[in-house]
Structure formats: structure tokens, C-alpha cells
């Protein structure tokens, strides 16, 4: 199913009462979009164990397209569910962290300001578990290009900088019995259409003609950012 039609459907269902107030936003901003479920696996192909996941840097996995990277982070403390405002009077529920300590969260890694993202060559956006000078605090996602700072413990709300909106959440399902994690959909405004326009030439080169817009199916490989991108402008240092 195409992203647009799903978003259109969601927006149509959720926003009948306020349709005339949304105008441009209605189609672009679905709340939850269900995508094909994908099991998170390590680079050996084994299901990623939710217990004891990396906390120092973000882990990267592709979802819902093979070319759209997301960050998975262990915040080290539970992230509680909360109501998020969409900025136009509509709010929606953010499910909070998952995993044994409810501390695992995932977001689209495409900066909501000017679409910086982790490519295989480089990344200017990253997660800082420790203190960093741009945010003046720890446990933040920072885009070093223009200093947008997001709070991963509260649905990637914009803490400072020029980003006009939060990062889209990747909704995760956690199976306590098997300790596995699966991505099930996207919550909030993803910028995939803008992303594909901005990077089409680069994506065709990286993934091959027609391949860059393939959807992730079944499983998706999780890699530490420092291995995913050759050069990382780390939030800890920028």
C-alpha cells in the first residue's frame, strides 16, 4: 500500500471535525501508519535481544523503506507514554519506551529541519548519551548541521534549534518471552516524500534504480551508527 493513501485514510478518519483547519497538513500528517512488520536482527541475522542493548550510541535500522534509516536507543531509564500535540489542536498518544525496562525507543533518523540523515558515507545527526555542548544536557538526538535538538524520552520533541516538528516515532513491539523487537509502523509526521525528492539521485546510486523505494519486509538489520556511516559528526563533539 502506498504511504500517501494510508496517510490520507488516517487523516480522513481522524480529522473530519477539523478538516477545514488543517488544509495543507491533513494529508501530510497521519498519526499512525501501519507498515509491514519487521523483526530487528543483528548483522549475523539473529534476532536482536532487547535485554542489554547498547546505550552509548544509536543503533541504525532501515524502516519502512530500505533507504530510510531509523535510530534505536536505550535511554537507560523508562520513557513513559504521553499525549503529544500535533500543533494544530489535535493530539495523539505516544506509547513510550518498550523492552524489559521500557527504555527502548526508535525514531526516523531524518532530521525534520533540512533532512540530514545517516547515509553510508556520513551522518550529521546522532544520539548523545552523554553531555554535549549544543544541547547542554545528555540523552538527546542532535543534528550538528543546524543544531536541532530532540528529546528521545518524550516522543522526540524539539528541545531547541530550527526543526519545525518532532521526529516521527517508529512503533516497536516487544515480545518478553523471546526478548525480540519488531517495528510495526510510524507514528507522527514522517518526511519520506520530501526525503525521496531531496536524495533521489544519491539513493538511485546507492541502492540501484527502482531499489531505493523498496519496503522493508520481514526483518531489518540493526547496526551501530559508527559502523553504519563512514564519517559521523558526533553529537558528543560537534
Amino acid at each position: 500500500m502506498r504511504e500517501k493513501s494510508v496517510l490520507g485514510l488516517c487523516a480522513g478518519l481522524a480529522t473530519v471535525a477539523v478538516a477545514d483547519r488543517l488544509v495543507a497538513g491533513a494529508v501530510r500528517r497521519g498519526e499512525f501508519t501501519r507498515w509491514a512488520e519487521a523483526l530487528l536482527v543483528d548483522d549475523a541475522g539473529k534476532p536482536l535481544a532487547a535485554r542489554g542493548l547498547e546505550t552509548a550510541e544509536a543503533l541504525v535500522f532501515a524502516y519502512p523503506y530500505v533507504s530510510t534509516p531509523c535510530f534505536l536507543m536505550n535511554l537507560g531509564a523508562a520513557a513513559s507514554p504521553r499525549e503529544l500535540s500535533r500543533g494544530d489542536g489535535v493530539s495523539y498518544r505516544w506509547p513510550g519506551g518498550v523492552g524489559p525496562a521500557a527504555s527502548l525507543v526508535a525514531y526516523s533518523a531524518i532530521c525534520a529541519h533540512q533532512l540530514a540523515y545517516p547515509s553510508r558515507q556520513r551522518s550529521a545527526i546522532s544520539y548523545a548519551s552523554g553531555a554535549n555542548r549544543i544541547a547542554g544536557r545528555s540523552r538527546v538526538i542532535v543534528c550538528c548541521a543546524h543544531h536541532s535538538v530532540y528529546d528521545p524520552a518524550s516522543g522526540a520533541a524539539v528541545l531547541s534549534g530550527p526543526a519545525p516538528q518532532r521526529l516521527a516515532t517508529v512503533v516497536l513491539r516487544y515480545e518478553p518471552a523471546t526478548q525480540t523487537l519488531s517495528a510495526t509502523g510510524i507514528l507522527g509526521a514522517a518526511l519520506f516524500d520530501d526525503f525521496f525528492v531531496a536524495y533521489r539521485e544519491q539513493l538511485v546510486e546507492t541502492y540501484g534504480p527502482g531499489q531505493w523505494r523498496r519496503k522493508v519486509e520481514g526483518r531489518t538489520v540493526v547496526t551501530p551508527l559508527s559502523r553504519y556511516s563512514k564519517e559521523v559528526v558526533s553529537a558528543a563533539g560537534c
Binding site: C111, H113, Q114, L115, A116, R122, A124, C144, A145, H146, D194, V197, A198, Y199, E231, V233, S234, G237, C238
Partner: peptide, 22 residues
């Protein structure tokens, strides 16, 4: 001065180009 800011500088410019043209 540091290298991280030099890399951020290039991405800063790419972001502006994206905003203007893409």
C-alpha cells in the same frame, strides 16, 4: 577549531541547498 565543525559546516550547506532546491 575542530574537524567535527568542519564536517557540520558541509552538512549545513547541503541542508540549505536541499531547502532551496529540493
Amino acid at each position: 577549531r575542530d574537524h567535527a565543525m568542519a564536517e557540520a559546516y558541509l552538512e549545513w550547506a547541503r541542508g540549505l541547498f536541499r531547502d532551496m532546491f529540493a
